[in-house]
Nucleic acid binder design. Structure first.
Length: 270
DNA sequence: TAGGCCATCTGGTCCT
DNA sequence: AGGACCAGATGGCCTA
């Protein structure tokens, strides 16, 4: 939310339902004749009948009408049902946007009023890369810890359950944060290849004020390299990670996950 | 001014 | 049956 820019504030992602309803009324009452969708017709006569209904009337009407009977309804009644459905859809999209904002907030990406909000597609792609990066970092950490303590008497192996989440005093010599330089294969997908500076560094905020765009968001992923290379390219002059599809290389174990967590997608033959 | 992004409407389909 | 989900269409806003 706080990452919203003036653009966002000037056009709220989810205006109040009442506002939408009123704007719809205004459009119709004032003879709005824009080339709206073919079925989007709010004629004044419809609205006249619509305004005669209370909210409770509308609700009960919509709830008690079967789809098959709708062809028998008057224009006003159909309009009422349509408004109810539209309202639900707006709410659904609003909830989706709220979730999207929540995702943006936890992304290692500069937030603030002066930073343009990530687009939806960029948010999703960046989130995906972030998850992949975290997974790789975790695996690398496990491997390094095993290497370090594997031959020692105290730590026969990696057992985070016993030691907590890496709370040993002092830096672990082989900590991934320090090992990236010697392990380019796990370099941070969200950081510029030449720098491991924190994403919260002042420079990032300035960088993210420029929307990362290069027309590759819709490019095919054919030319994507190995995961180790992560982002193939970065925002021109921005140093920002590229969220484009070319930079997306799903590891096998991640790809298979989608079929498990999204049964609707797999079963959907549309 | 073109293109990107977005909100909204709408009808169809699937799920509970 | 009703709601959720989805995708296409449309128009508005913003930026390069």
């Amino acid at each position: 939310m706080d990452s919203d820019t003036s653009r966002v504030s000037s056009r709220p992602s989810s205006p109040e339902v009442d506002d939408i309803f009123l704007s719809t009324l205004k459009k119709s009452v004032h003879g709005f004749s824009g080339a709206v969708s073919s079925t989007q017709s709010d004629s004044p006569s419809d609205l006249a009948s619509l305004r005669g209904l209370s909210a409770a009337d509308e609700e009960s009407l919509a709830l008690h009408l079967a789809k098959k009977d709708r062809k028998l309804l008057s224009e006003g009644e159909l309009q009422t049902i349509r408004l109810k459905i539209n309202s639900r859809e707006r709410k659904r999209m609003h909830d989706l946007n709220v979730a999207m904002d929540g995702l943006r907030e936890v992304m290692p990406y500069a937030h603030g009023p002066s930073v343009r909000k990530l687009s939806k597609i960029a948010t999703l792609l960046l989130a995906r890369n972030y998850i992949l990066m975290l997974s790789n970092s975790l695996e690398e950490m496990k491997r390094l810890v095993s290497e370090i303590y594997g031959s020692s008497g105290h730590h026969g192996g990696f057992h985070p359950s016993a030691c907590g989440t890496m709370t040993h005093a002092g830096p672990v010599p082989g900590h991934p944060a320090a090992s990236h330089a010697t392990h380019p294969a796990v370099h941070h997908p969200l950081l510029p290849p030449v720098s491991t500076a924190s994403l919260s560094a002042p420079g990032i905020a300035a960088v993210t004020s420029v929307r990362p765009h290069h027309g590759l968001l819709k490019a095919p992923a054919a030319g994507a390299g190995p995961l180790g290379s992560s982002f193939q390219h970065w925002g021109v002059g921005t140093g920002m990670p590229c969220p484009c599809s070319m930079c997306q290389v799903p590891p096998p174990h991640v790809s298979s996950m989608s079929t498990v967590t999204m049964p609707r997608l797999t079963s959907d033959s549309k």
